[in-house]
Design a protein around this nucleic acid. Structure first.
Length: 950
RNA sequence: GGGCCUGUAGCUCAGUAGGUUAGAGCACACGCUUGAUAAGCGUGGGGUCGAAAGUUCGAAUCUUUCCAGGCCCA
């Protein structure tokens, strides 16, 4: 007896169903490395047009988290897809190495020894620390399958990079953009340093809240008579009663620095006559706040004398509550009536808004507080006291002077130092600044470039960064820190003038290039100075060096110069910057300012942003909430491939969720794709595309339909790569694998592949088709599933490049387009669905099990019987039944058989009857056929199989 | 508190310029198959579109408010 199973062409392949990704991925990486794959990709692209994705440098501190993985994987997908689409897309990764966090880590290690060791030792330790994490992160990134110049990355602490930073600073100086000024900045008195916005965290703090009287000493002000003819004096109801403007503040310690009082010009203010402790006074405050404030003060006996807009109050001269100084009422738009009295105490040296009011009215930027937050001798009463501690004394003093109306405690959001977590103060200090609005109109030019010269993806990125640049203050470049590139300014010993000299910057640049920026701190100053250098103010020749270093945003902001312009394989501007949306204030921001200031053009043509990784509920990940998932966990459990699929599957323009469920779903989707690969590979193991391919026009109908559909998804996927819409790639391909291939084409194809003649045209046509399908799918997915596609690539027959990553994307084949066919099958699949329902009914009734047990009678009803009749044979194979006939319903099915009838609700009049198929079951192809038993020499198989065996 | 953004089935995504009973895949349930088998196939249940109000003959799609969440600021 023949074992007919042996005569079938069943799938055969060593491409494993089980991926074992976490083991195999590192092996693949090693293989790539040994083969020098990245260099080969570079070499292959040397004559192609460039596509430059410029890497934003992550900070060289700590291990990578999912945010890093997301960002770098997205970049890798861009680079790989552009490479496969005919570009040379070299990727040079970088790291941000200077800055406070590393310095603090090192400081922690040194503890008290820091001061003895000096700057050089600290800087050396910082460099080592940064190097250590560059190395750690590099390995972690490589593990993600990211291709790039890992052995030659850019580090902002490299000597060449440091020299570039200095040279860019020189250009800023040359453009006249850099000035030294006094300005209130966030100041941490504990760390003795100015803090960047980014270095400030907001947290709840309890502060004293005080209401203070500022007595008016003169009502002979400049605007005594207003346009409406109302005398301010009249508004004040000037009588022989003391008049006070009432202010509210939660920082009593800034009162010694008070220089003015601000009111909103358009807000209504009232003069309120009150009786307190038996005598009368007139108080001025915002009309809307009178009632609540009086309530708070417990004053019941009051009456509003008069009301007028704040603009009328401008110029009232008040007496400082305890310092012999005047404080004048000014108008400002930032004033609100949400809290307090609508009259705001102004200390230009201690607040941003205050500073701006002061600037407008020519007030001194006065801040009698030293680096450690202690009052200076300017405030004798509190000299040497820490400002927050002095609050109490100041309140007592106010009380004593009879100026305090009310004091209480409030809890509010207050800025804190990100490092020591202590509350910070606003304090005016001498800093180097980049002017946003001077003659060179940096702000204006940057805004113009943002709206006209850069493509922002998603589009709202434009509004976001525009708003930020529009409102940002001058760029404070200096940091009173150690680990960074020095601002090589000189301070004249003769006249104390601080200045930046272009000649010095130039000559230093060369030395930085050779020996690094450390020399500024290490070498004697005389050795560094150009000959004959004189103070531009007093011609003095004795100098001291500036100790401040540059803001690290300046470091990374000039990467277009340090990296794009300086590397032969790159060029400026870049095609794309791709970072998280926080970089609208970070790197995108500093980069465009730096580039506009020095090159007049933006450093990027387009900017793509992604959202943040959040947990399954959409909440941010934090250690304290315990919802953090580390890349490692995912890699160990599922493999990098699933992590990459996650990056590709989610719409990154929004926040990106990750959870165990999401990963589980994705790993299942991965298996589906992998199985599709495997199934096709199994069925083309005996197929040689060069010799066995069937011409397109000789393919069968379903083959051509499938290639038409493949064409469709190819077009869609290529366009999605082009437009950076990666999640549609995943959905498109997954859907194609599941719906068009697995549940339709491949399922139908089994009969042809397994049972027909091994070398017959029908089988070869099927193989030709699925070969095309797999070849395309593997290429299309290579940028995402970097390992799996490479694995499949090696199994694919035919001549091909050594690696899928050296291959090109498939092209859309115009010859394959057949919309008529597509249309036809769209209609037929509706019939297929309905007949499937009938089969399911028959299955429930136990008439059939497998569809091949069935014979189907179709009465089309209102549908076109003739047309359906034509595709009878196709429907048999599509439904995988043993027989099907389309009739007009006049011939009833054989009554002897058990049958199941189904009337369609979807297709009017369609009636389907399912019966057990007649004849015997062919042992070989499992179809039922009347021919079984009639074949000589083959008693148990059908005529079709006999023919196949011939 | 402000700027920008998001909120469609358990999950990931579609839903064109507002117009018939809101789609897909996965997951789930039930069944089939055992020649993709730690696979494959079929059928089925499940959202009224974050909430409310409004504009409109008609809204997931426009407006307002509110709620929840994210980034960046204060």
């Amino acid at each position: 007896m023949t074992d007919y199973k042996e005569t079938l062409n069943l799938p055969q392949t060593d491409f494993q169903m089980k991926a074992r990704l976490s083991q195999k991925e590192p092996e693949m990486l090693k293989k790539w490395e040994e083969a020098g794959l990245y260099d080969k990709i570079k070499e292959a692209g040397k004559d192609r047009p460039k596509y430059i994705l410029h890497d934003g440098p992550p900070y060289a501190n700590g291990h990578i988290h999912l945010g890093h993985a997301l960002n770098k994987t997205l970049k890798d997908i861009v680079v790989k897809s552009r490479t496969m689409s005919g570009f040379s897309a070299e990727y040079v990764p970088g790291w941000d190495c200077h800055g406070l966090p590393i310095e603090l880590q090192v400081e922690k290690k040194f503890k008290e020894k820091k001061k003895e060791l000096g700057k050089t030792a600290v800087r050396k330790a910082c460099r080592e620390y940064a190097n250590k994490f560059v190395s750690i992160q590099r390995d972690e990134f490589k593990r993600l399958g990211i291709f790039g110049e890992w052995e030659n990355p850019y580090l902002t602490m490299n000597y060449g990079y440091q020299a570039a930073i200095l040279s860019e600073l020189g250009r800023f100086v040359e453009e006249g953009l850099v000035y030294k000024g006094k300005k209130p900045v966030h100041w941490c008195s504990s760390c003795s340093t100015a803090l960047a916005e980014a270095e400030v965290e907001h947290a709840e703090k309890t502060s004293p809240s005080v209401y203070v009287r500022f007595e008016a000493v003169s009502i002979e002000f400049s605007k005594a008579i207003m346009e409406d003819g109302v005398k301010t004096a009249a508004f004040l109801g000037a009588e022989d009663i003391p008049i006070s403007v009432i202010i509210w503040t939660t920082t009593p310690w800034t009162l010694p620095a008070n220089l003015a009082i601000a009111v909103h010009p358009d807000v209504s203010y009232s003069t309120v006559r009150i009786t307190l402790h038996g005598h009368e006074e007139i108080w001025v405050l915002a009309t809307d706040l009178v009632e609540s404030t009086m309530d708070k003060f417990g004053i019941e006996n009051y009456s509003i004398v008069n009301s007028a807009p704040g603009s009328l109050l401008e110029g009232i001269v008040c007496k400082h509550p305890f310092v012999a100084r005047e404080s004048v009422v000014r108008t400002a738009n930032f004033v609100t009536t949400e809290a307090g009295t609508g009259c705001v105490h102004i200390a230009p040296g201690h607040g941003q808004d205050d500073y701006e009011v002061g600037l407008k009215h020519g007030l001194e930027v006065y801040a009698p507080v030293d680096n450690n937050g202690l009052f200076t001798s300017d405030v004798p009463e509190f000299e040497g006291q820490f400002v927050f501690k002095a609050n109490n004394g100041i309140i007592e003093l106010l009380e004593e002077k009879g100026m305090l109306i009310k004091t209480e405690e409030v809890s509010h959001s207050y800025p804190h130092c990100w490092r020591c977590k202590k509350p910070v103060i606003f304090r005016a200090t001498a800093q180097w600044f980049v002017a946003m609005d001077d003659d060179s109109r940096l702000r204006e030019r940057a805004l113009k470039a943002i709206s006209e010269e850069v493509e922002w993806v998603p589009g709202w990125g434009k509004e976001r960064i525009y708003g930020m640049i529009e409102k940002r203050p001058d760029w404070c470049l200096s940091r009173q820190r150690v680990w960074g590139v020095p601002i090589p300014a000189l301070i004249c010993s003769g006249c104390s003038n601080a200045f930046l000299d272009k000649g010095l910057i130039n000559s230093l640049g060369k030395r930085f290039e050779e020996s690094g920026a450390d020399i500024w701190f290490e070498r004697p100053l005389e050795e560094l100075l150009p000959e004959g250098l004189k103070c531009p103010e007093c011609n003095g020749t004795e100098f001291e060096r500036e100790e401040d270093i540059l803001d690290v945003w300046f470091d990374s902001g000039v990467s277009f110069s340090a990296v794009l312009e300086r590397r032969e394989n790159l060029s400026n501007p870049a095609d794309l910057y791709l970072e998280g949306s926080d970089q609208h204030r970070g790197w995108f921001h500093s980069s465009i300012l730096a580039s506009i200031a020095t090159r007049k053009v933006p450093p990027y043509k387009s900017v793509l942003t992604h959202g943040f990784v959040v947990d399954g509920k959409g909440r941010k990940m934090s250690k304290s909430d315990g919802n953090v998932i580390a890349p490692e966990q995912i890699i160990e459990k599922y493999g990098v491939e699933v992590l990459r699929l996650w990056v590709a599957a989610e719409d990154y323009r929004d926040d990106i969720r990750v959870s165990e469920e999401i990963l589980k779903r994705l790993s299942e989707a991965y298996r589906r794709i992998r199985n599709t690969f495997r199934y096709i590979l199994g069925n083309i193991s005996d197929f040689n595309p060069e010799t066995d391919s069937v011409q397109f026009n000789e393919l069968e109908e379903l083959d051509r339909l499938t290639l038409h559909r493949l064409n469709g998804i190819t077009e869609k996927v290529l366009s999605a790569y082009e437009k950076f819409e990666f999640h549609t790639i995943y959905h498109t391909v997954h859907n194609f694998c599941t719906v068009d291939l697995s549940a339709f084409y491949l399922d139908i194809l089994k009969d042809r592949l397994y049972t027909s003649g091994t070398k017959g045209k029908s089988r070869r046509a099927a193989q030709t088709t699925i070969y095309y399908v797999l070849d395309s799918l593997v290429r299309l997915l290579a940028p995402v599933l970097v390992f799996t596609t490479e694995e499949a690539w090696a199994f694919l027959p035919g001549k091909r490049e050594a690696s899928v990553h050296l291959a090109a994307m498939p092209t859309v084949n115009a010859d394959w387009v057949n919309n008529e066919l597509d249309e036809k099958w769209r209609g037929l699949s509706a019939f297929k669905d309905e007949i499937s329902k009938a089969l399911e009914g028959a299955r429930v009734e136990k008439i059939i099990g497998h569809p091949l047990d069935a014979f189907v009678s179709v009465v089309p009803g209102e549908a076109d019987t003739e047309k359906l009749k034509e595709v009878e044979a196709l429907l048999v194979s599509v439904l995988i039944v043993s027989g099907l006939c389309v009739t007009d319903g006049t011939e009833a099915p054989k009554e002897t058989e058990a049958s199941f009838s189904f009337v369609s609700e979807e297709i009017p009049g369609l009636k389907v009857t399912v019966t057990k198929a007649p004849g015997g079951k062919c042992e070989r192809c499992w179809h039922y056929s009347e021919s079984v038993g009639t074949q000589t020499g083959h008693a148990t198989i059908c005529d079709r199989c006999v023919e196949a065996l011939a």
